[in-house]
Amino acid sequence: MDRLYENDPFSKGYSPESIVAAPARIAAHKRSSGDGPISLTSATFEQYVGASDLPIVIHFWARWCSVSKTMLPHFSASARELAGRALFAKVESDKEASLARRYGIECVPTLVVFGNGREIQRHCGAMTAGQLDLWLRPHLRKTA
């Protein structure tokens, strides 16, 4: 999906130093967050998605959507269960409307998997933790 990354991070106002420092911020966040999902904004999205060596699973959700809110505990459980094999993040679509528009989010919840800074899979609708684990299996980093 080339249209997703047609803008380079420097045109968004990120300095080369912030891009280089992103992997360290991701590692520090993983240590401090208990491996739960992180909240992304327009200001932090590119830094995480573009810098992670793990697949990133992003849950686009909305507070007004009961299905989105019901799925959050399942998403958090998968984040803890699959820590070290994928990075989990959430984007509140109403607060980050520009991100939702940029990635063509038409329903909530929507799950998007990114690998190497590119979208590789998308699912519209809720999933249990077990369903999410099965859906993600082909994209997870292999453990030693």
Rank of each mutant, 00 (worst) to 15 (best):
A83K: 12
V49P: 08
E96D: 14
T110F: 06
R101S: 14
G104S: 14
S76R: 10
H59T: 00
A43M: 08
G50K: 01
V67S: 12
W64Y: 10
E81S: 03
S68M: 11
I56A: 04
F45M: 10
L72N: 14
E81N: 01
G117R: 03
P109W: 02
F114A: 08
R63T: 11
A62G: 13
Q47L: 15
P55R: 03
T110Y: 11
S52V: 06
G84P: 02
Q47K: 06
I105G: 07
H74S: 12
N116L: 14
A89T: 06
E81L: 01
S78P: 05
L87R: 00
L82N: 05
L87K: 00
H59Q: 08
R63C: 04
C65T: 12
A100P: 06
E119A: 13
L72I: 15
K69L: 15
G117Y: 06
T110M: 09
P55C: 03
D94Q: 11
S66N: 15
A51R: 06
G117F: 00
G115P: 08
E96K: 08
F45A: 08
E92I: 05
T110L: 06
W61A: 10
R102C: 04
E106N: 12
S68C: 14
Y103N: 03
V108T: 14
A83I: 03
F88S: 05
E46N: 12
Q47P: 03
A86T: 09
E106Y: 07
F114W: 09
G50A: 05
V113L: 09
G50M: 04
Y48W: 13
S76F: 00
W64M: 02
F114I: 05
S66P: 12
A79E: 12
R63M: 12
R102A: 13
T41V: 02
E46V: 07
K90W: 02
S98W: 06
A62P: 13
C107R: 15
R63F: 01
S52I: 08
V67D: 09
L111H: 01
V112M: 15
R85C: 07
P55F: 00
K95S: 12
N116D: 15
R102G: 03
I120V: 10
E106L: 09
R118F: 02
P55E: 05
A43T: 12
A77K: 05
L54P: 02
K95W: 02
E96A: 06
R102Q: 13
L99Q: 04
W61I: 00
Q47S: 09
S98H: 09
G104Q: 11
R85Q: 14
E119P: 09
E92G: 08
A89C: 09
